[in-house]
């Protein structure tokens, strides 16, 4: 996730202090991983340098968390562009798993077991997410659903690959 764009977006509704930004981020998006203050300040100084935010005021007492930031027009354009650009679909997991399966076949290990082990791990994760979804609010549900659909896609790939292992073994042996 782009922390920079997210913080920028949070500034669109009005100027905020560094600590306020962190709190808003954690509350809305930091379900699993709250931001470190360090991340907020390094991100804000980068946005400042790029002209996407400006300092709108400083409270007495010093320290970066006292700075109040406001989004600039360039910043708004940047958020707009980020929101309008689709994310690259990342098939990273498949390629790791594919490598493992092919390597197992090449070294005459049990590739079916590798797939089943992964499958069990995926389903274990899906159970945890389903449970969290049942107990959570709408935001939890949407976030968990996204992860669940992705894990489900992985799992379907695992199933399909398991069903095609004999064929794959033939191809790999060539």
């Amino acid at each position: 996730m782009s922390i920079g764009h997210t913080l920028l977006g949070l500034l669109e509704s009005g100027p905020r202090h560094g600590y306020d930004l962190k709190r808003a981020f954690d509350e809305k998006f930091g379900h699993d991983r709250p931001l470190h203050y360090g991340q907020v300040y390094s991100t804000m100084s980068r946005l400042l340098k790029n002209g996407l935010v400006e300092v709108d005021g400083i409270e007495p007492g010093g320290g970066p968390e006292r700075k109040r930031y406001a989004i600039t027009d360039a910043g708004i354009t940047d958020v707009q562009r980020w929101l309008a650009t689709p994310e690259k679909p990342e098939p990273y997991l498949q390629s790791t798993l594919y490598t493992k399966v092919v390597l197992a076949l090449l070294t005459r290990r049990n590739a079916a077991d590798i797939l089943d082990t992964q499958r069990a791990e995926h389903l274990r994760m899906m159970r945890i997410l389903t449970d969290r979804k049942r107990k959570g609010d709408l935001a939890d549900q949407l976030i968990c659903d996204h992860a669940l659909f992705h894990l489900e896609a992985d799992l379907r790939w695992l199933e399909l690959t398991a069903a095609r292992l004999d064929k794959l073994a033939e191809v790999v042996a060539k």
Binding site: D116, A120, L123, L151, E152
Partner: peptide, 27 residues
């Protein structure tokens, strides 16, 4: 056959060619 539905279960077995595999015992 839907993993998201199976995720409501406590435990899973997979049947392939008439044989069952208890996925809790896969390590």
């Amino acid at each position: 056959h839907e993993a998201r539905v199976a995720a409501y279960s406590d435990r899973e077995i997979v049947v392939r060619d008439g044989k069952s595999r208890d996925m809790e015992r896969v390590v």
